[in-house]
Design a protein around this nucleic acid. Structure first.
Lengths: 286, 286
DNA sequence: AAATTATAAAGAAAAATATTTTCATTCATA
DNA sequence: TATGAATGAAAATATTTTTCTTTATAATTT
């Protein structure tokens, strides 16, 4: 609770009736009050603007705008990354925003803490030197695979990220030593993804997994298992925190690869960015 | 550096001479500016109050007080958790991890600060009551559209997220009043995405955009523009921070929708989760 | 190249809005 | 009944926005 709000709460008994109503209203929903003018605030509290100015002055502010300025300042401190919060019915949107921010922040910090630097190092090296890279994932994890695919393609890497599990297996069967397969699954238990990684392993590829932290079939199978923090519950409801954690790890891998081959890769990235604009610019026809 | 100030620095070259002087003055001493009235600020910059309001409006604020409010909010945040860091050649992986963590955390907190609660509220309401939802995005933004698509489908929403721009237009042409179109583009300048949203608007649909903060064609077109924090540089190199910011907003929208129809939606989410396991379990054949 | 026509930028002043002050009234208390 | 704190209505003031006009710049035509 901010200094200003605590002050109001503390002093509330010393206020006159109308001032008390003001204080209560402000304490009840400060985020709302911060976007009100003096007339609106007065109306919402069933009092007059004059009373509001006097109220602000009695709190030793120069006037209402001065008070509002302080309120805005105190309310705009970021939510701290804490425990994961579940979303329940009919909450005001501002609470939802706060909860989701907190979840996503936690997701990133927790995942970072979990990362095994050595495994990460090996993963980057493997991916960097891979002749070919296969990415496997079903459902939402397929989205993450697609994202990594788009990145790797820009580096000129030979890479596939089929959403179709038959195609994944088909692709996996053609891998060889020197190739890398990365399987993504939050639970680590997705049968199709396990099958694809098993197939890749049998074909001789180096296998990587990205799952939630804990024991599950996928990391057991992988040569290099990587983990995100786990969040339970929310996943079933399609929460994004798991996706963000996965993308966070993917970005670290990608940046690691780019950093290793900086001279070669950065021009390629810039080039692909410019070419998309360049070649699609002149005429809109197709 | 706060989102607002970075925006000013970024866009300063696109401003008119007087606006440039304003931006420079604000960047030079924001703490001082936050306690000025519009007349004083204008005087200090040797310009007129009219120019100042126009300047604020062009930055998508409701007016000068709205701008000042945001400035105050951003300045009163405790020392930045992290400025965006660019990745350079051959750094130890440990440093890369730290830099990326910092980038992603900033991306989320900055984006949260930027969210306009009112726009968010309207967006959630529009999406909740939409008869049909179209999602547009090219390249990496297409990934974000896909993610939202996967979520909305689980709620039984009628929704499309074509990656092909011809299909996007085709779909957009068939929209009607009561339908919603959401266009995603980091730059806000992707021609195909603009075309699709324009088409949707002409067809009578309510239009939403999700772009980086600032002025660009897409939010100008949209009925409800939503923004993520902007990070410039990294984007060209395919950095993930912009994606994470977009997904963060998407998750807020989605959770807002679910929260509005909690009783109806949560069972659907649980059901779809279980059905995927159930129906794919017994025999592996296909 | 010169002249003309758009277009954009910017300020002055008017209009609209927001805030503060003044003043009159009410209500509780002595 | 007098006193004074609390309050609101309305006037005064301050602030912001809009409108209108001028000026400068770019684009187009002759």
């Amino acid at each position: 609770m901010s200094a200003l709000l605590s002050l109001l709460r503390e002093q509330i008994e010393h206020f006159s009736p109308q001032e008390k109503r003001l204080a209560e209203h402000i304490l009840e929903n400060p985020e709302h009050v911060q976007r009100l003018g003096i007339t609106e605030l007065a109306a919402e509290c069933g009092t007059s603007p004059a009373t509001v100015t006097r109220f602000c002055k009695s709190l030793r502010f120069k006037g209402f705008p001065d008070f509002k300025m302080r309120l805005i300042g105190e309310l705009s401190r970021p939510a701290e990354a804490g425990t994961y919060q579940d979303i329940v019915a009919g909450r005001p949107l501002k609470e939802i925003v706060r909860a989701i921010e907190s979840n996503h922040l936690s997701s990133i910090t927790d995942t970072t803490r979990l990362l095994d630097p050595e495994a990460l190092e090996r993963a980057v090296t493997a991916l960097s030197s891979a002749r070919r890279i296969d990415l496997y994932g079903m459902g939402t994890s397929s989205i993450v695979a697609q994202d990594f695919y788009q990145k790797l393609i820009r580096l000129g890497k030979s890479c596939t990220a089929f959403a179709d599990s038959h195609m994944q297996i088909t692709s996996a069967s053609t891998l060889n030593e020197g190739d890398v397969a990365l399987a993504i699954s939050y639970s680590g238990e997705t049968p199709e993804t396990i099958a694809a990684l098993q197939c890749a392993k049998d074909a001789g590829a180096m296998t990587l997994s990205l799952t939630r932290y804990g024991t599950s079939p996928l990391p057991a199978l992988a040569d290099i298992p990587l983990f995100t923090s786990s969040l339970e519950e929310g996943v079933r409801r399609g929460a994004m925190a798991s996706r963000i954690a996965q993308l966070h790890v993917i970005d670290i891998l990608f940046t690691g690869i780019v950093s290793e081959g900086f001279e070669e890769y950065v021009p390629m990235l810039e080039q692909s960015y410019h070419n998309v604009r360049q070649y699609l610019k002149p005429s809109g026809g197709a």
